[in-house]
Design a protein around this nucleic acid. Structure first.
Length: 498
RNA sequence: GGCUCCGUGGCUCAACUGAAUAGAGCACUUGACUACGGAUCAAGAGGUUCCAGGUUUGAAUCCUGGCGGAGUCACCA
């Protein structure tokens, strides 16, 4: 009965505004597997919040300033020979990333040389000529040096263009982009504010600190001796800016668990500063993605690149689909869309099906398995349902959802499907409260499984009676809708044929 | 070293926050298309929940102590 005009768990606005920040890349190298978990998690959780009645702003805080980008800049100046991404024919983020790698190669050698010359490791790290160039570049940038800023802008634009291509392919978008280059000055203001209030203090060399030892934490640096900002400075400013811009009730940060401490400190400092929005800060912390052989290390070249990963998954979907040969009549365009839907769907689901808090092992071979607890399994269920509608000449959009439960004697298989469908709103709320999209992933899987059992045991088209047929068609329809809705909350599309 | 988190069949994950026979998937074994799509379904085998104590009518879950692993404690971000 509940399914008449049922809106599948959607709630109207509950009056709360939430910002979800995710992705948050550095502009010195391309996105990798870890970012993928972050992005899919953030995007999915934003959708879940929306479905539960929140007004959601999806934000991306790009770390576009600092020594890391200066390193890429110096390397490009020294070794780039004026080349551009267009010239090389590669994405801008990969292009700039190449120079970051180059920097590290040379830097490492210079350190080794200096250490061989009698310097300590720490000294060598500071004295290496290339590092000195980078530091000088940062200083110039902070002093608004025309050339430095122009180069910085040029290289960042390359990277942004590259990122945009990746986001497009992932089918994620943002409502607001913050750049740390635009927020760090505000952060410095907040530091001044804290100094005036006596919450922070200056050390002899001029660096600014706050002492959080009473709260069980350590002393924390807020401003370097030379007056330049650190990570925390920028985050203070960004937090303020987010609130000024949107007057949000909650501010959710999707950030890896290696920053648990940092986020704790950030919130505490803002609370001490008496900021009303501080209490609304929540760190949606997620565990690192590891590979079967250990964790990803850029130094050892074991980082899995996000773009490569996506291509691999889509290629696998293509291969698999061709082997099965069920969509030979598809146009090129349709095939391309299908492969993206299946490949990226499988990848998103693989990353979202586990509790975000926990570290996870990414097994490339298992991730491309399209059986069992996977997106293609669920997508397949959806496609088969659509197949029934095609056969019955029914337009799902026009088919009315009207279950007259009272008159029916439900078969056990039918009952199980109904019971499972009833759980959807509950799963949605749980995912929202627990801040855990994997609840939705698990739900979709259970629903698909329950439906498949029903499907394999009872015929829809050749049902015992017209009434039964009607009922089962309705079960099919609602199942398809809930699957589509649920998977949509994970950012995964479901095809009508595959 | 201090603080935080984690340890569940060969592998990847669950377990409504203390409940009854610890659930799924992969891999393995066996079955099912003259039935709406076999990317499916049905069945089987596989566990001392890291170890040792403790609390409890009852512990994977809570406490203590080990062992093993991760993160963090930067004038990096």
């Amino acid at each position: 009965e509940n399914y008449k005009n049922y809106d599948f768990g959607l709630h109207s606005w509950n009056g709360e505004k939430v910002m979800v920040e995710f992705s948050s890349p550095n502009t010195n190298k391309p996105l990798h597997l870890g970012h993928l978990r972050n992005i899919f998690l953030g995007y999915s959780y934003a959708k879940i919040l929306e479905a539960c009645g929140y007004d959601v702003i999806k934000a991306n805080l790009v770390n576009d300033r600092g020594i890391h980008i200066c390193r890429s800049m110096v390397a490009w100046l020294n070794y780039g020979e004026g080349k551009t991404p267009e010239f090389e024919g590669i994405k801008g983020d990969h292009f700039v990333g190449k120079y970051y790698v180059k920097f590290n190669e040379v830097y490492k050698r210079q350190i080794a040389d200096l250490v061989a010359g009698g310097m300590t490791e720490a000294e060598a790290e500071k004295e290496a000529p290339l590092q000195k160039e980078a530091v000088e570049m940062l200083r110039k940038w902070e002093n608004n040096d025309k050339e430095a800023v122009a180069l910085w802008k040029k290289m960042n634009d390359w990277v942004f263009a590259g990122f945009d291509k990746s986001y497009d392919r992932m089918r994620v978008s943002f409502d607001k982009i913050y750049r740390e280059s635009e927020t760090y000055l505000l952060g410095k203001k907040l530091v001044d504010e804290g100094l005036e209030k006596g919450l922070f203090y200056k050390k002899e060399n001029g660096s600014v600190w706050t002492d959080l030892s009473e709260d069980g934490l350590d002393e924390k640096l807020l401003l370097r001796a030379d007056g330049t900002s650190v990570y925390m400075t920028q985050d203070l400013g960004t937090a303020q800016l987010k609130y000024d811009d949107y007057k949000i009730d909650q501010s959710i940060y999707v950030i890896g668990d290696e920053q648990n401490y940092h986020m704790k400190v950030l919130k505490l400092i803002l609370q001490k500063l008496g900021k009303s929005y501080a209490d609304g800060i929540y760190h949606l912390s997620y565990g690192m993605v590891e590979l079967p052989h250990g964790k990803m290390k850029s130094r050892e070249g074991t980082v899995v690149d996000a773009d490569d990963m996506m291509s691999d998954m889509v290629n696998t979907a293509e291969k698999h689909t061709e082997e099965l040969g069920k969509v030979r009549d598809f146009s090129e365009e349709e095939l391309k869309t299908l492969y993206e839907t299946l490949g990226l769907g499988a990848m998103k689901f693989y990353l979202l099906r586990v509790d975000p808090k926990k570290r996870m092992v990414f097994n490339p071979e298992e991730s491309i398995d399209f059986h069992g607890f996977t997106a293609p399994f669920i997508q397949y269920t959806h496609a088969r349902i659509q197949s029934i509608f095609r056969k019955e000449n029914i337009q799902p959009q026009e088919f009315k959802v009207e279950i007259s439960a009272s008159k029916q004697i439900f078969h056990d298989y039918e009952k199980q499907v109904v019971l499972q469908l009833e759980l959807f709103p509950q799963a949605l709320l749980e995912a929202c409260d627990e801040r855990n999209p994997s609840v939705v992933a698990g739900y979709c899987y259970e629903l698909a499984k329950t439906f498949n059992t029903f499907y394999n045991n009872l015929s829809v088209s050749n049902a015992e009676s017209e009434e039964k047929k009607e009922l089962r068609l309705q079960l099919c329809l609602i199942t398809a809708k809930v699957i589509k809705k649920g998977m949509g909350l994970l950012g995964i599309r479901v095809p009508d044929r595959m």
